[in-house]
Design a protein around this nucleic acid. Structure first.
Lengths: 186, 186
DNA sequence: ATCATTTTTTGATTTCAATCAAAAATTACC
DNA sequence: GGTAATTTTTGATTGAAATCAAAAAATGAT
């Protein structure tokens, strides 16, 4: 969905603010396997997935771990760079052909300083991030791979034909082979 | 440290705001093993550790996992209840004798609506939470138990005589025996 | 100090998932 | 449609850490 439409539909923005925000948006299309954001970058952009699927991942040498998936209408925020002025450890990779709405965070941050609606909008997005991070930690620390698997297909069933087992397995914290066996029985 | 002193020292609050906030604070002392916040509760309080050490943990049946430790000057925030109106999955347990400064979040939230300093203060705490959660996810997903161990002693060396191996092990995601062996060699 | 309780270490065994390897299936491309 | 390339499944083996069990050490209480 168009990013501005989406924010409106979620009652995050009202007409005129939305109007103005839409001027900040730049759109870009990525092919499968393109990097939307490379690892260890210090981008201060916000990446909204208008179409397609992406993954947020850590990578170093021979290690590659998927942190989470971004479906349509999800936002990838390089928090390290935006809030903490350090390079962002994770990257974002397109897993299908993807349309991304990109916005420079600083512009809207400045605006938010003088605008209550934007201020609240900004806060809402932070809370959204907090929710996702909190849930993910619970998911990793307290649930079993099988439970994580069940949660994933419940929340994001379309993932299966589209995303390769390897990425899903690393999201779950197991190997591809183990995931394949997990699916087989049952 | 006294919570208000701490916020001042961090330039999070100025004189008069601090003054007023201090009226919101209620202090409580806990013994070792006391629950500061039970699991699955819906407290809307914020818990600031003025003295001692606590742990944030998930528990169900025979499962008990330590999420992270709260040292002096750290804040425990039951985000589930405060932001999402659901019971908070984690609890907080005192690991030593502990002095906690407790504050009702709603009071300061209402205040923040009409006060820019409080608003910014509130936002800073959110960002702090985001940082911790982000780092922790990296820590869990991308680092090995040994690396987690090294990070922990680097950041929080005093933990060792004070907190039992069992809790530390569950924080690291291994068993107590494995941790004991990890420490032995070297 | 002594005894009791808790915590940590050490040892032996088991188990589950990782690894290694190859076959089968699916997808992509000329 | 056929061949190549990729992805998934299946099988056999290995290994690292969990489990089980008990000894040793540390802490606490009387």
């Amino acid at each position: 969905m168009d990013i501005i439409q989406y924010f409106k539909s979620q009652q995050l923005l009202t007409g005129d603010t939305a109007e103005r925000l839409s001027k900040f948006v730049r759109r870009k299309t990525y092919d499968k396997k393109d990097l939307i954001l490379p690892v260890d970058n210090s981008s201060k952009n916000i990446y909204f997935i208008e179409q397609g699927i992406a993954r947020v991942f850590y990578a170093q040498k021979n290690k590659d771990v998927t942190l989470y998936f971004l479906q349509e209408n999800k936002i990838g925020v390089p928090v390290d760079s935006i809030f903490f002025n350090r390079v962002c450890k994770f990257g974002i990779e397109a897993l299908t052909e993807t349309i991304v709405a990109i916005m420079a965070y600083e512009r809207w941050e400045n605006w938010a300083k003088h605008n209550a609606v934007m201020q609240q909008f900004s806060q809402r997005l932070m809370i959204e991030y907090i929710k996702n991070a909190t849930d993910r930690i619970y998911n990793i620390k307290f649930q079993s791979p099988k439970e994580r698997y069940d949660t994933l297909i419940a929340e994001f069933p379309e993932i299966f034909p589209q995303v390769s087992l390897g990425h899903i397995a690393s999201y779950l914290g197991i190997t591809q082979e183990t995931l394949s066996r997990l699916r087989a029985k049952k």
